[in-house]
C-alpha cells in the first residue's frame, strides 16, 4: 500500500537527511515511525506525500508513483502534518468542506463522515468557530477530521497525537485500528514508544536518515533481552 524504495534526500549541498531508505506498509498494517529529533522522519513523510522529491529512489502509494502520477497517488492517502496551524481564518467547518470539495466527496458521504468524526473527537460544537480561536489540540483534531473526510486506503500521519487530549488520542488510536482492520494501511511517526508498542504491528526506527530497525516490537525485545524499550531505543539511536 505504501512503498518506499531506496529513498535518499539531501538538503542543500551536503546534509543527507535520508539515506537509501526502503520499507513497505502492507494492507491491514499499522507501522510506527520512530527516531530521535532530526532523524529524518518528517523528511521521509514529506517525500511520501509529494512535498519533496527524492534525490534517489521512489515512493509508491497504492501502486502509483508519487512523482510520476501525483494526482492518483495523492487521492489514495490522508495526510496529517505535524503543524496544524494553517488557514486559521477559516472556520473548522469551512476548512473540512474545502478539503472535501478538493477530493470530490459527495454531500451525503461528507455529512455522514463529518458527523461521525466530529462526535468521536468532541468537535461538533466548535466547527463554526474560526480556527484561530481553537487550541492547538482542537486544530489538530480538525486537521485529522479533514484528512479522513475522503476515507482513503492509506493514512500518513506526522506526530498525530501531539496536543490531543487523552480522549481524542484514544479515539484516534481506535480509528487507526479500525482502518487497518478494514484492510487499509496506516503509517505514523511518534516519539512515544509506549504508543508504538501498543498500536503498531511493526516499527521502523530511523537514525541519521537510515533505518536502524524494522520489525515487530516483540522481535525487538527478543533481540535485546533484559532491556527496557527506552534503553533499546537509546542504544539504537545513540552515536
Amino acid at each position: 500500500m505504501i512503498r518506499a524504495e531506496n529513498l535518499t534526500f539531501v538538503y542543500g549541498k551536503q546534509k543527507k537527511a535520508v539515506d537509501a531508505l526502503s520499507f513497505a506498509v502492507q494492507p491491514g498494517e499499522i507501522v510506527g515511525f520512530a527516531g530521535p529529533n532530526g532523524a529524518g522522519k518528517t523528511t521521509v513523510i514529506k517525500m511520501l506525500t509529494g512535498i519533496l522529491k527524492p534525490a534517489q529512489g521512489r515512493v509508491l502509494i497504492h501502486g502509483h508513483d508519487i512523482v510520476r502520477e501525483p494526482l492518483v497517488a495523492k487521492r489514495a492517502f490522508a495526510y496529517v502534518a505535524d503543524d496544524p496551524d494553517v488557514l486559521l481564518q477559516l472556520s473548522g467547518a469551512e476548512y473540512i468542506h474545502y478539503v472535501a470539495d478538493i477530493y470530490g466527496v459527495s454531500e451525503k458521504d461528507r455529512a455522514d463522515r463529518v458527523q461521525a468524526l466530529t462526535e468521536r473527537f468532541g468537535m461538533a460544537d466548535a466547527l463554526g468557530m474560526p480556527m484561530r480561536e481553537y487550541s492547538h489540540g482542537m486544530r489538530q483534531k480538525t486537521m485529522i477530521i479533514a484528512a479522513l473526510i475522503h476515507n482513503p486506503p492509506a493514512w500518513i500521519l506526522d506526530e498525530p497525537m501531539t496536543g490531543l487530549d487523552p480522549a481524542a488520542a484514544y479515539e484516534l488510536k481506535q480509528l487507526m485500528k479500525e482502518h487497518a482492520a478494514n484492510g487499509n494501511a496506516v503509517l505514523f511517526s511518534t516519539h512515544v514508544l509506549e504508543v508504538a508498542e501498543k498500536l503498531c504491528d511493526r516499527i521502523l526506527i530511523l537514525h541519521h536518515g537510515q533505518s536502524v530497525y524494522q520489525g515487530t516490537m516483540e522481535q525487538l525485545k527478543t533481540q535485546h533481552p533484559q532491556k527496557s524499550l527506552e534503553e533499546i531505543f537509546i542504544g539504537l539511536t545513540s552515536g
Binding site: 514529506k46 494553517v86 478538493i102
Partner: peptide
C-alpha cells in the same frame, strides 16, 4: 508562503 507544504499534498495539479 507557509501554506505551500499543506496545499501540495492535495490531488491538484501544480
Amino acid at each position: 508562503s507557509s501554506d505551500r507544504e499543506h496545499l501540495v499534498t492535495f490531488p491538484v495539479q501544480a
